[in-house]
């Protein structure tokens, strides 16, 4: 290995550290500092506020259901993309990346156009049969599923490709059915990719703002999620609650990552 000169090495390190410090660590630490500026007051005030508690609960429900849907759908689509040849496969692969490149606000508007009870393509029919999508939880889940859609797939697809299909064929030739092969061979070998996908989509779903804001209508105490609370309280000079809620959102995401870092075996195959 060629040794980089010491001066260059230290300069590079300093640049990286300064960059991360200014962009990530310092702003986030300010949120933490502001949250605890008056000890636990901000947090206890936030937890005493029924609207904030409802928002946190709603966020948890929306995030969990979205992650569940995305895991089932993501693993299925990954298997389809990697293990099967069919016309339009490349098109599907491109479509799956779409939510990554489209602004969440556009996603929200698009859902509104389709499911709006007044004038939406499906919305009117659904509304007349008593199902309300827009301005209620189903719509918020749909928006969240949409924006987090590629995360599980992008984790699982490369792992499936790397593992190959020979173990699956071996299991089949040993008498395992398609379902047994999936649960006993495929799933264990992509386990860590799925877990990473879950963590990423959970973090993404907890933090979703734009799409949810459009489809939820941001109704306080009913369809307001935690991210919407942060924005609304901050605008209305209730900064303590805004910081406390922001802190809770950030902690949940960090907790996910830490848990996985500890769970993951050091020499795992995938």
């Amino acid at each position: 290995m060629v040794r980089t000169p010491a001066l260059l090495r230290w300069t590079l390190r300093l640049v990286v550290i300064a960059y991360l410090l200014l962009l990530v660590a310092w702003p986030v630490s300010l949120v933490v500092r502001n949250t605890f500026a008056d000890g636990f007051d901000a947090l206890s005030t936030a937890f005493a506020d029924a609207h904030v508690v409802h928002a946190l609960e709603l966020t948890a429900v929306v995030a969990l259901v979205s992650v569940l849907i995305n895991v089932v759908f993501g693993v299925t689509v990954s298997l389809l993309l990697v293990r099967h040849e069919f016309p339009g496969r490349r098109l599907l692969s491109v479509l799956i990346d779409l939510p990554m490149s489209v602004s969440p606000v556009v996603v929200g508007l698009a859902l509104l156009l389709v499911y709006n009870p007044r004038g939406g393509w499906f919305g009117e029919g659904l509304a007349s049969s008593g199902v309300q999508v827009i301005f209620s939880t189903p719509g918020m889940i749909m928006a969240t599923v949409f924006v987090a859609l590629p995360l599980v797939i992008r984790e699982v697809v490369p792992t499936l490709q790397e593992v190959g299909d020979e173990q699956e064929w071996a299991a089949r030739s040993l008498g395992a059915s398609g379902f047994q092969t999936f649960t006993r061979i495929t799933l264990p070998s992509i386990k860590w990719a799925v877990i990473y996908g879950v963590v990423l989509s959970l973090a993404r779903s907890l933090g979703e703002y734009g799409a949810v804001k459009v489809v939820s209508g941001n109704i306080v105490g009913r369809t307001q999620t935690a991210t919407l609370v942060v924005e609304e309280r901050y605008q209305n000079f209730d900064q303590a609650t805004a910081y406390a809620t922001a802190f809770l959102l950030a902690s949940a995401a960090v907790a996910c990552i830490v848990v996985v870092a500890f769970l993951r075996p050091k020499h795992s195959v995938s």
Binding site: E166, Q167, W169, A170, S173, L174, G175, S177, P188, V269
Partner: peptide, 20 residues
């Protein structure tokens, strides 16, 4: 017949042992 109904043992060039 699907492979699991043929009662055939198959050994692959790259072993295909179950890694986990």
């Amino acid at each position: 017949l699907p492979p699991q109904k043929r009662n055939v043992g198959f050994v692959f060039q790259h072993y295909a042992v179950f890694k986990h």
